[in-house]
Design a binder for these strands. Structure first.
Lengths: 252, 252
DNA sequence: GAAGGTCGTTTGTCAGGACAAAGTATTGAC
DNA sequence: GTCAATACTTTGTCCTGACAAACGACCTTC
């Protein structure tokens, strides 16, 4: 029985470029991902077996396996020995990168605006140095921003970035999100530790955020590291709870 | 130069069991992990190159690579072509499983106690069926629990679990956490989508939680899926903000 | 008719080899 | 002494081949 998998997805021939610097397994994985996302391979259906697939695409079995494995790790496929490879419901797909407030707002069409309330370079306070895993007194850039969305204040954000990681330009911060700057500098946050809590607003916070005293606030402190385990960012943020909530996807 | 990597970790010989059903690459990875966690391989140091390592451990290079790759994905190692493999600071290690409130409390020594306030089996409301990706009207177990920690009320938790996934026993819920029951049934939550927000307590909520009206509350709604993309749990929880905050680790 | 064994299918594991690409260190020229 | 080219080390990619283990379906037997 090697016609087509019953009720399953038939993968059309894929043009691979062996001269490209992009690895073969990645070309295959990307193409499969496109087919799945375009709905050409039905969710819940089964993929052909990896041997046929490899042969038809003209790659070796290990390469085919690696492409499939890549999509398994991203939650798009599930494999079971003796059964086959199944296409999973899109709801459980893993996001591609750590999100930031700026990205989120820009993506949902609300225009983010940033006001810088303070900006200084100096030695790191102990608790921040400890969180980032840098020596006490190492130089950091410390700044406080007020973030607007749709013309209304949304969050007060205090952040620290080690100078050794990136020397931040004050003007860049106005027009870009912090994560955007970090990524542009080739320093990609790969892991983050967050603590999310809630409390009521003090009079000062309420005034700045355009809320009344005692209004509920979301608080978040975060430390982010790059792939090498280097602490790249520490942040302490407060958000108006009536206008913001965290949406996050957790994976094992 | 094949003496020992400068300033690096020397991996002692490892006893491998080729008759064991545990894959070789996993035996190697586990042993390496132990060595790193025990501090015998220094953080920040470099591992030997994979060719020597494979030879000395008596496995092929692909097997050695797979073991190393496993630890790279868990955030314990970083590799760079032409440079080598480096051991990363433990802070950025990925957690092994999705946490639940019950586990967290038990782990930190606060004794969790659970009071069941309602418990019923019936057809799923539309918004829950939609979140879990099950047909409208499919049978679910719906229950509301009050969770105490250290003798004081901490959270009101409403949850839904499809009967098709697990027929929950009311008595089990008192002495076990929900995730514990799910895992015991062989149905491991692998991915979860959470929305965390904040608001003030209504009079009724305040009374149940032993707070005053207008006190800040943390709210969380979550949908969890297993590896096959099957929705296994929907939850809507509220927590006393003065006694609880979410700590979570995000990875790309 | 039900229980159990057998067989084919499919994924999982492992080996060995070859070449490419990136980064570091050394060497040489000016 | 400085800069550029070269050699070496190390990981990345890709291939072929082989066997093992899990699963489902079919068949046989009782």
């Amino acid at each position: 029985m090697s016609e087509r998998t019953v009720g399953g997805g038939f993968v059309p021939d894929v043009a691979l470029d062996r001269t490209s610097p992009v690895p073969l397994y990645f070309q295959v994985a990307t193409r499969l991902q496109q087919l799945i996302e375009a709905g050409e391979l039905p969710v819940g259906g089964k993929l052909e077996n990896e041997i046929d697939l490899a042969e038809r695409l003209g790659v070796s079995r290990p390469t085919m396996r690696r492409a499939i494995q890549y999509l398994v790790e991203r939650g798009m496929l599930v494999r079971r020995r003796g059964v086959g490879t199944e296409i999973v419901h899109p709801k459980v797909r893993r996001p591609v990168e750590l999100s930031s407030l700026y990205d989120d707002l820009a993506k949902t069409g609300q225009q983010p605006r940033t006001e810088i309330r303070s900006f200084e370079v100096g030695p790191a306070p102990d608790h921040i140095a400890e969180a980032l895993g840098i020596p006490e007194g190492a130089e950091i850039t410390w700044f406080e921003r007020l973030r607007y969305a749709g013309g209304e204040p949304l969050a007060i954000m205090q952040n620290a970035v080690p100078v050794a990681v990136l020397a931040i330009d004050r003007d860049d911060l106005v027009s870009n999100g912090l994560y955007e700057l970090l990524r542009a500098a080739g320093c990609v946050p790969r892991m983050a530790n967050q603590v999310v809590g809630a409390r009521t607003a003090s009079a000062g916070e309420a005034r700045v955020l355009g809320e009344s005293r005692g209004a509920p606030l979301l608080t978040m402190t975060r430390t982010a590291w790059d792939a090498a385990g280097r602490g790249v960012e520490y942040g302490s943020h407060i958000y108006r709870a009536d206008r913001y909530s965290f949406e996050l996807t957790l994976t094992i």
